[in-house]
Design a protein around this nucleic acid. Structure first.
Lengths: 227, 227
DNA sequence: AATATATTTTAGGCAAGTCTAAAAATATTA
DNA sequence: TAATATTTTTAGACTTGCCTAAAATATATT
């Protein structure tokens, strides 16, 4: 027998509050103050108080007057679902539609509120169950599990002989992009770190069967995740 | 020099009214009455009057008390953009995510309100600029041009010995879908009309080298375009 | 044409989500 | 600890989009 938890339908605004509370809880390990939430939501403290009462009545947060709020288990589950959808859509926009990783946030912000768990599942499958989004942030799986331990890292912090996937570059100067392009390196490129030269902090990697040397500057601007 | 028309941001509700007015204008070739619109929107006539005043103030419709409404040029443009987005998303859901033809309407109803013309363009390109959605309805192009040029037609209105491509079905009963599935017929399937039997209005087609007989009912529910 | 019926609009109200201004509680500091 | 400053809540109001009930207008019928 399968147990299906009926999850209440939330408004876009309610969902955004849940997400904001989750984000603050992750950053500061404390209850979330009204002002912090107002700041995060770009609204007034009085509006926050109103909403906080409503979410509390729905048991998505615990709220005590003048003492801030905390997400309940159910609230956390909703936040993670939203993050999952957001990151899956960002991955879709970059990998399938060819958007730049810097242009997808706003659109994903809208897409994450589309209601259909089947859509999320199918999107996940279509993208081949990605573990990280284009910004290197982990994508929660369907059960809400987030692999926070394997976080995206800089190429300079990798282990030798290990395989990685390029998920981003921080320097976006045309010359750097051209340099990567010339070598065929792109988002999604699978590379292996061969050697690290301490004298100039350059490294050599294996990519597409070829060995490529990357300067210190290049290395510092490439973000990877373990493959 | 490119002229960019700044289009005002509309609420989901406003957009839905515009779409509803457009739909009624297409069906009946007349001004749209308050009651007809209330029926279409599943709401009360008084609510319609309220909204109609607002849309009129925004010059998206012309409205004269007790005389019904008509979309302005700008209103029509918005309606067509919404239809374009709706049909592109439906195509995406069916062709890329593997949804059934019958399950995509509700989701597309949400997706069509996502604001980003770049997203629409890129989605269109990703889908290879489809001309018809999974239901056989034409997809307006970026300039709002709808190729109604009688391309999509019912299988019952085809010419013998001609090649066609299946672009949709109107009956969405599971048994009918299963029936098509068993024969391997799908959206995009290339068929040739072999013969038409007047006594029971069934036809025989060639598909994948095999000859398949389709009953009158089946025929009436399949939409094709000339190949 | 006068009356009956149907349609549409107005008037007033409600919920969601926001705001400002003022009051209440908490935190800081002299 | 008492005064001051900050944070949070309350009270009342606004907008959007909807509602009901009643009034106004248009249409149909005798």
């Amino acid at each position: 027998m399968t147990i299906k938890v009926i999850m209440q339908e939330l408004s876009t605004s309610e969902e955004n509050y849940i997400k904001a509370i989750y984000a603050i809880e992750q950053a500061e390990r404390d209850t979330v103050s009204t002002n912090a939430l107002a700041e995060q939501m770009q609204t007034k403290a009085s509006s926050v108080t109103d909403m906080v009462k409503k979410l509390s009545a729905k048991s998505l947060i615990t709220y005590e007057k003048y003492k801030g709020v905390t997400l309940t288990e159910e609230g956390i589950a909703i936040a993670i679902k939203l993050i999952r959808k957001h990151r899956l859509w960002e991955t879709f926009l970059v990998e399938k539609l060819g958007f730049g990783w810097d242009e997808v946030h706003e659109i994903a912000e809208q897409l994450e509120h589309i209601q259909s768990s089947k859509l999320t599942q199918k999107l996940d499958a279509f993208l081949n169950y990605p573990k990280f989004d284009p910004h290197g942030d982990p994508i929660p799986n369907e059960d809400g599990v987030i692999h926070k331990n394997e976080k995206a890292r800089n190429l300079s912090e990798t282990d030798l002989q290990e395989a990685y996937i390029v998920i981003g570059v921080s320097d976006v100067s045309p010359s750097f992009l051209k340099y990567l392009d010339k070598n065929g390196i792109n988002i999604g490129s699978k590379i292996k770190v061969l050697q690290r030269y301490d004298f100039d902090q350059s490294i050599s990697i294996e990519f597409n069967g070829k060995e490529i040397n990357l300067s210190k500057t290049a290395v510092q601007n490439i973000t990877v995740i373990p493959n």
